[in-house]
Write a protein that binds this DNA or RNA. Structure first.
Length: 311
DNA sequence: GACTCGTGGCA
DNA sequence: TTGCCAAGAGT
């Protein structure tokens, strides 16, 4: 990597990847020139751990209903959770709603431009703060997401995959390979991310389409295999599965659902994607634990009439 | 640092 | 069919 940087080869890599982006980027609504900070922010929340194709229709609906932060802030949390639908990780909707309230009260309805102020909002971590500042407000931040980490690991590091958890050295490297010019750095962030999403993918990278094939340290090293095997995300029989089933029921009911019939409904719901809860070892115990978790997280409330979404 | 937290498509 | 994985954040 250092050899590339000091020899000036990095600038050619900037040009190759940025030009590739200008020719091959997807046309996404939150990337259009006039996109507002709020439009970018909502897209970033929805895109956390979620593919673009599933985000698109939900994002369109959210922007139609709530074109400004104060529009969402004026709604009860239950509306945000219902409109979130089956995107997954509903706590993102909860935090996005909370962030909209904070933007309304603390920033007069304007999404802050600075990375530091963005970072302080609920649900906004290092990545999302850098991404909003870069994509919406053209700040030359250092954006590091899973795509960028993978491209850097291969192109500069000669590795098949990045480390399992981000290291400080990765952020240092990302900063080092960043173009000096502000506008070029801005384009570089989205270009590397898009390259990782479309070409330098995790499983079967399309190296024959890659604009920096000739520069890639991983290719030069003979495409060595990963030095670890990622451990899969368990799903069947987990609390997460049951939490998802509970939220699916609550989204469909305006009135509180009595805990008794609620648990029965949960056991018999026919949604094809859920494994029959009778298969679980301790179904009742697990349902109760999952429900307790949701109540504790503020994603559901228990009132006299039963369980419902929080208002 | 290791875990938890949803969902659906695809190799 | 089943496991991997997708623009992470919070604890």
């Amino acid at each position: 990597m250092n050899q590339l940087i000091y020899s000036g080869g990095v600038q050619q890599i900037h040009d190759k990847i940025n030009n590739w982006y200008l020719e091959n980027a997807r046309d996404l609504p939150w990337r259009r020139p006039g996109a507002t900070g709020w439009e970018v922010m909502v897209s970033e929340f929805m895109l956390q751990q979620t593919p673009v194709v599933r985000v698109l229709p939900v994002w369109e609906e959210w922007m139609r209903r709530w074109p400004r932060p104060q529009d969402l802030a004026a709604e009860p949390l239950s509306e945000a959770l219902k409109a979130w639908g089956r995107l997954g990780y509903p706590r993102r909707a909860q935090r996005l709603h909370a962030a909209a309230v904070e933007i309304t009260t603390e920033y007069n309805g304007q999404v802050p431009h600075s990375e530091e102020q963005l970072r302080a909002l609920p649900g906004v971590g290092d990545y999302t703060a850098a991404a909003i500042a870069c994509f919406a407000f053209h700040e030359p931040t250092v954006v590091v997401d899973t795509n960028i980490r993978r491209v850097h690991a291969r192109l500069f590091g000669g590795m098949a995959l990045p480390e399992q958890s981000p290291r400080a050295s990765e952020f240092a490297r990302a900063r080092q390979v960043q173009p000096d010019d502000s506008a070029t750095a801005n384009l570089w962030n989205i270009s590397v991310m898009e390259l990782g999403a479309l070409v330098c993918t995790a499983r079967s990278p399309k190296c024959e389409q890659c604009p920096v094939f000739d520069d890639c340290a991983w290719i030069k090293a003979g495409q060595p295999a990963p030095h670890y095997t990622p451990k899969g995300q368990a799903w069947k029989g987990t609390d997460r599965q049951v939490r998802g089933a509970i939220m699916a029921i609550l989204r469909e009911h305006e009135e509180p659902v009595a805990e008794q019939s609620f648990l029965a409904d949960l056991a018999h719901q026919s949604h094809a994607k859920y494994v029959a809860l009778s298969m679980l070892e301790s179904p009742l115990e697990q349902r109760e634990r999952a429900l307790a978790g949701l109540l504790n997280d503020g994603l559901a409330v228990n009132e006299s009439g039963g369980i419902r979404l929080p208002s």
